[in-house]
Amino acid sequence: MRKTFTGLRAWLIQRVSAVYMLLFIVFILAHFVGDPPHSYAAWNGWMMGSSVSMATAVFFAALLAHAWVGVRDVIMDYVHPVAFRVWALALLGIGLTAMGVWVMWILWMRHG
């Protein structure tokens, strides 16, 4: 296995991303409970503010990295034939990348 797959880095990414996602979810829930937006426009305006949209982008980056490590681990555990594993990891990578592009498009391009 290549060194880029080192266990420590993947493990650390999973832990750090989990902590960030937890903090972000608490922040979002606190906002919607404490100061709920009154209209779609108000929600959209808040959501698209530069700091919130940046925090949201980091959240999705953390989510995708977390999912990559987690599903990669499941594939490494259960899919042993190399050919199947390469395909499974490739599909996972393509799927997660597509979701990342989609999120970026929603956050910035659509209203850009």
Binding site: M1, G7, W11
Partner: peptide, 11 residues
């Protein structure tokens, strides 16, 4: 132990 398998297969 610093590789994806020897230690880090532990879930």
């Amino acid at each position: 132990l610093h590789d994806p398998y020897r230690l880090f297969r532990c879930r």
